[in-house]
Design a protein around this nucleic acid. Structure first.
Lengths: 342, 342
DNA sequence: CTGTTAGCGCTTTCAC
DNA sequence: GTGAAAGCGCTAACAG
């Protein structure tokens, strides 16, 4: 009981295979007579005909699939969100995405070459990991002549196929949010990572930029150096990430400091658990999906050699919870929940 | 600059295409002479030859891919873990997994039929959702003659292609764990869902079974009915899930009840945020990966018409954190962290 | 041992 | 308007 082929449809409809192929594909142009078309449609319907994409790809030398080069844990929130965007855009443009299950360094390449992917999206890790040699990945993709785009890459690509999470914007926005809520003495807290990590530098910079715009002094502290004494003197904090905020929060609550009454905290990224911390944490969300979409569209437009209309990248958003006190006289009419800010 | 084909390799090696095909595929049998084999290997190497899986599938009438029929949010922990298992087993057996991006009811079927998937794994939702008509999905898969396995299904399939998360075991184990830690008066707390949800009934049953084995009285309460007064009288609680435990925990902490000093809590499932609750929550983990693996192996063995050796399903595990007090005299030498229990 | 060849299902000239 | 036929890359008889 094999699946119906184009041949079966042709036979049943009493026409040639080429007629079937033409009619079933060209939805707009109607070279064939209405009568023939109808015969074909009903025959296909009757047989439960499904075009074989494998055969189509074989013929067109295209697989209509895009491979993901990925160094993230599969359940990482950033990865998932980015992937959601990639997949959505792929669906829209008629491409499917495939992910190599194998974890070791470059084995995905064979996997993808075997599968004849039409292109790839490389999602680089945020922190430059020793094991992840971005340049080498790029070199190999180029050598394999696979069109690709890079998300969050550290390398500048000539074709502009590089899309980055805007880390500076996250802290800029977090700071801006606190300012809007009437806070003035805002402290930035992050771990003592090395400065060589792009993300770390950008996050701090975003905070400083916004503070300087306002003519306010910047104060940056490492979370490792924090003491309860210090915390008691702080009232408004921006942290780089949720885990830093959690450390601050734990120390504050232990010291009897109330959040948000005595201390407001906002983190410049969102984690699965941000809203489940002792005090639900207000955070900044990066539009990962959009970045995924943009990268996907770029790759596909490279494959198809024509520009696809590009949507503008939306800004980061503040996901409001309960960790920030409103000091502004205007009051905070809105309830907690996600909303676009700025 | 096209990709090298088997023909190119044959030409360069000065042999026929069939020789190349044979040598490159049958790693064990060596019908061809060593000299020929070497020529072929080096030619393939030189050309950077990658077998075209599309063409291979075309010929063999197999795609070596399995489709996922899924009703979960893509970032749901249960789904991800199950998928990890499915993917791992697929890789082991030479199959890739494909996920239809489209969300609407049955559109995945066309997608998969087009892609000529060899089989499918249906991951049913835990709670029987009105929108998810399991029988209908099964019927359609059968009609399309796609071999499949069901995970967490409510329907009993004749071929035994049904794999279920063992919800009863989760609470049985949670209860057992508290008993081992010296607790005796153990309360079970869950929300007031309807009893028609299989998971809910099983979870309660697991608790009761273990208590009855011990000859201890059961006490079940709905989280909605809980009051701080009641909580003060409880010292050991099993909850169905982490979110229930969170509610209990919040109420307890607000009422000045200390965890785990005054009150021990264990939840019968793990969430991303379990360990980030005000008191890191001890939970029971279901081996989702293993269930995914088993289902995947089953489908593939159905496709290939031969039984694949099956691994035994591992039991649930307790992921120890800080929400349970050890009352047993033996002491608790082990630190917090995951360990197999019972 | 090794080579020739017939398709797998589809698209796409090209001829009628 | 319509059909015949070549061929995408590969595998598997079958022939030598």
């Amino acid at each position: 009981m094999k699946k119906a082929t184009i041949k079966d449809v042709a036979a049943l409809a009493g026409v040639s295979v080429s007629a079937v192929s033409y009619v079933l594909n060209q939805s707009t142009e109607k070279k064939y007579s209405e009568k023939t078309r109808q015969k074909i449609y009903s025959a296909a319907e009757k047989l439960g005909y499904h075009p074989n994409h494998i055969a189509r790809g074989m013929r067109s030398q295209r697989s209509y699939s895009i491979g993901i080069v990925n160094w993230w844990e599969i359940n990482n929130r950033v990865f998932i969100k980015t992937l959601e965007g990639i997949t959505a855009m792929g669906e829209k443009l008629g491409y499917s995405v495939v992910i190599c299950p194998s974890a070791d360094s470059y084995s995905y390449l064979s996997y993808y070459e075997n599968k004849r992917i039409d292109g790839a999206v490389l999602i680089a890790p945020v922190t430059s990991m020793a094991e992840f040699n971005e340049m080498e990945h790029i070199r190999r993709l180029q050598k394999a002549k696979i069109p690709f785009a890079v998300i969050n890459g550290h390398t500048d690509l000539p074709q502009g196929n590089c899309f980055r999470y805007d880390f500076a914007q996250t802290t800029y926005l977090a700071t801006d949010y606190l300012l809007a809520k009437g806070h003035r003495e805002i402290i930035y807290i992050a771990p003592k990572y090395g400065e060589e990590i792009r993300e770390v530098g950008l996050r701090q910079k975003g905070y400083m930029t916004r503070m300087q715009e306002e003519g306010l002094p910047c104060l940056c502290r490492a979370v490792e150096d924090l003491t309860p004494q210090m915390l008691k003197q702080f009232h408004s904090i921006v942290t780089n990430k949720t885990d830093t905020a959690k450390k601050v929060m734990d120390m504050a609550l232990t010291a009897g400091i109330k959040i948000p009454e005595d201390l407001s905290i906002i983190a410049a990224n969102t984690e699965y658990y941000s809203e489940y911390l002792p005090v639900p944490l207000t955070t900044v969300q990066i539009p990962f999906q959009s970045i995924g979409k943009m990268a996907m569209r770029r790759v596909i437009s490279a494959i198809e050699h024509h520009d696809l209309s590009s949507e503008e990248m939306p800004a980061c958003m503040v996901l409001e919870q309960n960790s920030v006190k409103n000091l502004s006289s205007e009051g905070n009419k809105e309830g907690k929940g996600m909303r676009i800010y700025s």
